[in-house]
Write a protein that binds this DNA or RNA. Structure first.
Lengths: 201, 201
DNA sequence: CAGTTATTATTACCAACTGTTAATAGCAGG
DNA sequence: CCTGCTATTAACAGTTGGTAATAATAACTG
């Protein structure tokens, strides 16, 4: 079967686009040593959109991603929220969350989901993390759905203790205790000391 | 002078593209109530590139931004590195690191700079954060240069204690102690317990 | 050799431009 | 009122990177 060559080329094509999605059909044709027409047929059977569509898509979710982290303020999707009590967030991971070239989810993304949730669960105007203790129990892998559950514990004046547990399926991968500080009113005034000791266990 | 109208339109055009850079000349023409030709002239005097070039540019620095987090594996720039001993990283902040609409730097970015540096300073193949204690001492603001210094402390088998201190100018804004675990060889084997207790002080 | 599949080439078409040239509208000064 | 100037619009050819459809060719297969 000479379709083996075709299958190989298809894989090569996908791999090429994986490393550089901004290649034109002509670029691909040169790289793979076939005609532009063949590339078009290949793209069509592989359901790979044209260069300009790929570019547009990248541009679109680039802006949505940046603003979603900046403005929505939470990493993951909040699916339950009882202010000052508990909150649940789900984060569907993909390769972008991976650590280096591995399938492992980098720890700082797990932290970020937890920390932003800990802040979101407190219903005060200005809230920041003062301190935290975090424990990574198991690895999470690309494709895992991280479910973080935040519970508000004791609170004294403007300091709240929020514990967050993150799991994948039934496996608990992460446990943390955040000391979250509410600085009602202007944020610029008492910027002197926000953390203090996090000894609350 | 009726060129005042022109100047106003130019400002409106730039503002429109500021909120949505993916508008075509036709879109802009409709929005501003002029012909497509006028938009072309406007773009030309304002040195605004065409839609496809803008899209491409966004896609390009989107991928460079994502890969800079993914592949370079470190948030910030490492300016000094003595493996298994100490490391220094500098992170020039901007509005993208801000918390909500404020000028404050969100805590998880400070964490990320520290955690990725703690990992980078350990010269082993597979390294992950097992646990951490973090303390946010002062706020950091948009524009601040965060200088993180990681010091490797005791280590026992595959567990290293790395302490990281982050400062802005002379002010220490963040202190953390990471338990970093090296899992030399395959990462898929001992995924059972990576953290353990972080009680090391 | 006929049949099938893969590949290539050809043609017409499109969007979103560039660049150039020409026509028109609107006002200002002499 | 006419001339000159600017701003705007229109009109046309050319470019890139495609789609869609069709035909021609190559290459292997039974």
């Amino acid at each position: 079967m000479r379709s083996e060559l075709k299958l190989k080329r298809h894989k090569r094509l996908l791999r090429l686009l994986g490393t550089d999605p901004l290649m034109s059909d002509l670029d691909l044709a040169k790289e793979l040593g076939v005609s532009v027409g063949t590339i078009r047929l290949d793209r069509s059977v592989l359901n790979v959109p044209e260069l300009r569509a790929r570019t547009r898509q990248m541009a679109e979710n680039a802006s949505s991603r940046l603003t979603s982290m900046r403005h929505e303020e939470v990493l993951g999707e909040i699916i339950e929220l009882e202010p000052n009590s508990l909150a649940l967030s789900v984060l569907q991971t993909n390769r972008e969350y991976a650590f280096r070239h591995t399938d492992l989810i980098a720890d700082h993304h797990i932290y970020t989901q937890a920390a932003t949730l800990a802040i979101a669960v407190i219903e005060r105007d200005m809230v920041v993390v003062g301190a935290a203790r975090v424990n990574f129990k198991h690895y999470a892998s690309v494709g895992d759905r991280l479910i973080a559950r935040a519970k508000v514990g004791t609170h004294k004046d403007d300091k709240y203790v929020v514990s967050v547990r993150t799991r994948v399926g039934n496996s608990e991968i992460f446990v943390a205790r955040f000391v979250v500080v509410a600085a009602e009113g202007s944020a610029g005034e008492n910027t002197d000391q926000i953390g203090g000791s996090a000894n609350s266990g």
